[in-house]
Write a protein that binds this DNA or RNA. Structure first.
Lengths: 234, 234
DNA sequence: CGAGCGTTTGAAATCGGTCAACAGCAGTGG
DNA sequence: CCACTGCTGTTGACCGATTTCAAACGCTCG
């Protein structure tokens, strides 16, 4: 994990249209140019923060991807989400002393670090920044709630379709190819996210593949029939 | 559903020590005496808000209990949580235009209504109120995340033990009897909350009962061996 | 007391889990 | 360049927890 010097101006960032500045005026964006205190580079497997770490920052993903997970003392764990560039991490630390989860890079990645204290400071002058934070937190809550519906009420096949549709939509939002791309997580991680076993993941993938809804070779995925996947996802 | 006139001063509320005023100074509590714009009485089955309703308030429970749930177009639904006096409802509306869930009374209940706009206004003068809202939102997030772990990684028996332990702890926090009480939800609702079928709920209850860990007759529950339930819950 | 609902219990079916073998690819080192 | 090794993913067979289907039980309330 490598800390870079502070030359991370949102106003000059290529990710600006998909990240925090979204919705701020050009003038306001320049005002928050000092908000990002540092950028951090991570290798695959590196954690930005771990369960129990003291929390004082949130993070936005510049490039790469992450998983967030929560663990039981006995070693079992649940992956809570996969996260793409422009999305935020560390939200479960806002308003509490410690992170309750951990965030781990799925590939070489880079994140921007924003201290809560800085955030509060800027929010006093820029009301829309405050509103923005509420929207980000809201997004986290509604996301988790939809995930609860998925884990609690859907079959393995429906869960998998949900996963693909959700990933596809989020990639589309960020201008990434939404029908053909490489998965940055393994089968085991998909299984943990969906509350099913790795073998079931594999079987459902084969089934969807045979049905002509997807093509998958190793980590390379092509979504052939998104409409039908949507129907299955419910 | 009946709206009461505005005579709902937090400074004089018996629930104050378990609700929003928690952590505020006496002076600050008097300052927020106008924050609750109204109180609403609900009968069993009444919804405070429904999925898709325009959101402009959060609610605190004065007495009674609620379930929050999210529904699929096809009728299937997932209960996200059960809520006790002093807890907050409508948090998935903070920072968004609409509620994504609905909140339904499980018995005759009463809630205090706080408009976001009012909240923002008071927060400008009372920084700890702002912090409080972050804490409340954080609580919602970490709760949902623990629920995800429960739904995704635990067996039916473990889920049920989790449910009891969680309920017991939350009641204890509020000075309610934490080992013997009446459940305000039916078996079907417990099943939806835990992602299992009603018959499985019934069978697990019988099993825990035979094992001497609980006693349950209809809705009346007595937790005999909380230690063991804790162990099962993981 | 009887209707109706919610709950319990039993038996059968099923989905997904577990166990086990194998295939595929990546990296290592001779 | 090609074994060798190890990891990840796939597939099959079997098993078991949970669901589904069905029936009976027992509250509650008019």
């Amino acid at each position: 994990m490598k800390n870079l010097p502070n030359h991370s101006k949102c106003s000059q960032c290529v990710m600006a249209q998909f990240c925090l500045p979204l919705g701020l005026s050009p003038k306001e964006i320049i005002e928050i140019d000092q908000l990002v205190s540092e950028k951090i580079q991570l290798n695959k497997g590196d954690a930005i923060y771990r369960q129990g770490d003291h929390s004082e920052s949130i993070f936005s993903i510049r490039h790469g991807s992450f998983k967030t997970e929560i663990s039981l003392p006995d070693g079992r764990g649940q992956i809570l989400g996969f996260h793409l560039p422009g999305e935020f991490l560390g939200l479960d630390g806002v308003g509490s002393k410690q992170y309750q989860t951990q965030a781990v890079a799925l590939e070489a990645s880079e994140v921007c670090v924003m201290k809560f204290s800085q955030f509060e400071k800027y929010a006093l002058d820029i009301p829309s920044l405050q509103i923005h934070l509420y929207q980000i937190l809201n997004h986290e809550i509604t996301n988790d709630q939809k995930h609860l519906l998925t884990l609690g009420s859907l079959s393995a096949e429906e869960k998998m379709a949900c996963f693909f549709v959700n990933l596809s939509e989020r990639r589309a939002l960020r201008g990434l190819n939404s029908t053909e791309f490489d998965l940055s997580m393994g089968r085991e991680e998909i299984g943990s996210f969906l509350g099913i076993q790795i073998e079931t993941v594999s079987r459902v993938l084969s089934k969807l593949s045979e049905a002509g809804l997807i093509q998958i070779k190793q980590k390379h995925l092509k979504l052939i029939d998104l409409d039908e996947l949507h129907k299955i996802a419910g």
